Amino acid sequence: MIENITATDFQLGPNLTGKRIVVAMSGGVDSSVVAALAAQSGAETIGVTLQLYDHGSAVKRAGSCCAGQDIRDARAVADRLGIMHYVFDHESQFRNSVIDHFADEYLRGRTPIPCVRCNMGVKFTDLFRLAKELGADCLATGHYVRRVEGVDGPELHRALDPARDQSYFLFATTSEQLDYLRFPLGAMPKPQVREIAQQLGLVVANKPDSQDICFVPEGDYASVVRKIRPEADSDGPILDLHGQELGRHRGLIHYTVGQRRGLEIGGLAEPLYVVRLDPERQAVIVGPKRALAVSAARLVEPNWLGKVQGRKVMAKVRSLAKPVTATLEGEWLRFEAEEYGVAPGQAAVLYEGDRVLGGGWIEETLGVMTAEAA
């Protein structure tokens, strides 16, 4: 299988002799296989791992990354491949730019995506600097996306395997970064990646994939937020759309837009859902499912990789959501049909076919019921 991989997969020309590739190694099977492909291409290959956190639970947790056992796995793979491997301590930067932001967003009644923030900041920004300081011709990662040469330069495209595609989490990749990045796994199915790892006898060949948020043991994000911001457990009222109190909640961090379970409100004529979170009143606002429908979302901090204004595009407003038709008018993304589950703090990523045109952070939404009432 590995014999079919050529130097051109790194898009540095047909011959990589004399070239240098830095590979971001998280300790998982994907980045380990990228390092193997780079090493067998003829280029000088250097593995770099950022230590991002190291609490006791993460060290023992299968499917985490960039800590404890994962760093040891990355080093073992590098030794097996005969390549240089460096570990850089970025724990304080990761805490300040990702973990603290994650906690603060929940206190603001928003639903954060720390994986995007990590890619935007600590991973890509710092890895870029390190790779260039090491004199690398490119930085290769194990992300499942494709870099395609277009008429106006490199473009970001979905992975060929839709089940593995990570393009939603990479919408903030800039054109300058994309020019330097390489994604050799974007055209591969996961079984092929594992087969390569097994052929080479890599210790991570059967290692489980990363799950949930890497720095949250057992998926219990509320405990992480409580540890960083103890005030996050403050209770408050559960209000209907008219401001009537229906019950009490146990802290905003336990609720997200669209949630139905866990409200513990009895005697209702119809199911109620979390419509929004109001941190100023420490209130959870609930309403019927119809109240979740939105007609538009305002985007901030955008990153565009193609023309989007005034065009019909396909918009993805959650990582697992199906893309829907929408048009960007200024800051407002207007949906062709009402959309559900659009939450401030999440990202809206725009596509044209398989190409990622960019995206932005959802700052606020325009509810269908609100517009009808007006």
Rank of each mutant, 00 (worst) to 15 (best):
V342F: 06
T327Y: 01
Q259L: 10
D30V: 11
V151Y: 00
A315S: 13
P208K: 14
L333Y: 09
V148I: 14
A76E: 15
D161Y: 08
V274C: 06
A371S: 11
V324C: 09
I238Y: 03
Q198W: 02
E44Y: 07
D30S: 04
H90Q: 13
T325K: 14
W304V: 06
A172M: 11
D54S: 04
A296K: 07
D73N: 15
E331D: 15
D126W: 05
K207D: 07
V87H: 10
V313H: 11
S31G: 09
C214R: 09
V48M: 03
T8L: 03
R80N: 03
P14R: 14
A371G: 09
V34A: 02
P191Y: 12
D54V: 03
L277C: 06
V98S: 04
E218D: 15
G306L: 01
P271F: 01
H55C: 08
G82K: 04
S295P: 00
D73H: 13
P191Q: 12
W304F: 09
V313M: 13
V59A: 06
V145Y: 06
G142M: 07
C65V: 12
G142T: 07
T45W: 01
G63P: 09
E301T: 03
K207Y: 01
W304S: 04
E176K: 08
A374W: 14
A343L: 08
L37Q: 13
Y86E: 10
Q192K: 11
A35L: 11
S223G: 10
D89L: 13
H157Y: 14
L12R: 12
A76Y: 11
G367V: 00
E372G: 00
F183H: 14
L333K: 14
E280A: 12
D54R: 09
G201P: 07
V193T: 15
E352I: 04
V308M: 13
L107S: 08
L202D: 10
R318A: 15
D278F: 07
V33G: 02
N206L: 09
S223C: 02
P112M: 03
Y106N: 12
M120K: 06
D209R: 08
I196T: 03
L357I: 06
A374S: 14
T8S: 13
T45Q: 06
R298F: 00
E338A: 12
F335M: 12
E264W: 05
V274S: 00
V300K: 12
R334F: 00
I213M: 12
A172C: 14
W304L: 08
Q192E: 15
H157P: 11
K322P: 07
G236H: 04
E218Q: 15
E195P: 01
G266I: 10
M314R: 15
A315V: 13
L252V: 03
G121L: 10
A163C: 07
A291T: 03
L181T: 06
V313C: 11
R248L: 10
N119T: 08
D278R: 06
Q244E: 15
P208D: 09
Q51W: 02
A140P: 06
I238M: 01
G367P: 04
R260G: 05
D100K: 09
P14H: 10
A283P: 00
G63N: 08
R229G: 07
G267L: 09
L333H: 10
G251Q: 08
K190Y: 02
T327D: 00
R290A: 15
G63A: 04
D161P: 10
A35W: 02
G153R: 04
R147K: 15
C118R: 05
D30L: 11
P154I: 03
Q51I: 03
A315R: 05
F335K: 07
Y340K: 07
P14W: 06
L156Q: 03
